[in-house]
Design a protein around this nucleic acid. Sequence first.
DNA 1: AAGTTATCGATAATTATTTATCGATAACTT
DNA 2: AAGTTATCGATAAATAATTATCGATAACTT
Lengths: 220, 220
Amino acid sequence: MIEKILTTPSLPTVRRLPTYLRLLKELQDEKQHYVSSTYIAERFQLEPIQVRKDLAAMGIVGQPRLGFAVTELTCAIMQFLGWNNASEAFLIGAGNLGSALAGYSGFADYGLNIVAAFDVDKSKIGTRIHDIKVFPLQKLPDLALRLHVHIGILTLPAAAAQTTTDMLVQAGITAIWNFTPVKLMAPKGVIVEKVDLAASLAVLSRSVKEKLPLKIAQGA
Amino acid sequence: MIEKILTTPSLPTVRRLPTYLRLLKELQDEKQHYVSSTYIAERFQLEPIQVRKDLAAMGIVGQPRLGFAVTELTCAIMQFLGWNNASEAFLIGAGNLGSALAGYSGFADYGLNIVAAFDVDKSKIGTRIHDIKVFPLQKLPDLALRLHVHIGILTLPAAAAQTTTDMLVQAGITAIWNFTPVKLMAPKGVIVEKVDLAASLAVLSRSVKEKLPLKIAQGA
DNA sequence: AAGTTATCGATAATTATTTATCGATAACTT
DNA sequence: AAGTTATCGATAAATAATTATCGATAACTT
């Protein structure tokens, strides 16, 4: 028996998976048993071949003429991302954005469970944001150890981002979801994934700027 | 005189520009007059050549041995992104996330100014979120016309995303910053830029999952 | 039952993006 | 003043990602 060696899927591929997952859940609700790469591609304005390559990269195989089994595919992606059993995470920074994330119910689908929030602001400590208790930041190392939490969601002012990161690393946090605009420095072994609002806005702004002269030219 | 034809910078390049901008502002505060691609690269763990290519793509030229003039570079990037004069935007959806964005003061640096919020929730209409007034959603077309606003920030539940988008397009909104997990369908000419939290979390989750077996192997 | 067709997966080609090489420039050092 | 060095920009090479081609498969149609 020949075991196909799977190269780990590329970053762009991983980024597309949640989109597929959303559609698959929808199809499951509609009791659809199979879905083709053609259909998925159409829904997201991608190329069918790209969808097939993405799925193939995870070792998923389809059936000619039928496509992919919806339930099987869903499970495979969930498992691949580790979203089938929830990971517990700390929220660091209970301000506007932190509060918004705490209140977002959708994370359940993403295998993420925020178990506690932390802040240095005394007016916030002791309160609850969307049912999540806010602790003083200095309690984090102790709680991380006791609750075996190793994921941190960073939603605090840019100025505090790096020093707090250093503290998180000390406390055994090994994965940081960074919502600050700061490029965080962390030792190898600590994963940092940045949600880069500025980058996203730059793309939007640039597209707008690029389009304007074209429109004028068209109108003339 | 030979005019160099500038190919419009690639998407990855555009996405890196705000990061550079942040550093440049910092250097300006420190009264640094020049900065080299080597230094920028070091700060963000990039290759110097990549930084130079990014800047070259905008038509910015440096000086051998000195690098790039900080102020000039800042202006060039700001101008390139259209961030030197603020664009007015509507916030559609005054929930947790919308409220957080309304309260984010950093957008001033990004050439973005939220002038009004909209919602269908009667308990929100008429109130203010961080000084921004919340209007009923159906008032949007009228206000868009009168205030000449053509950027919409979409922060509402997934279920309402597409129908609201259709309405925004009707109202003359031509650029949508999409914070919902939905792949929005919009006519050509309407720019949609998605802030894909799920994609970002997928990358984090996958990295975590990928690392675990390695760690165990290392420990053994 | 035979022919048609939608889809898959393997391989190849193309395109996009990053990284390397190297001569030119101009500040700094001796 | 001559030599050294950090950096730039142009060109080339390498890598990554997307897209195309095409034979194989199996459901559907006639």
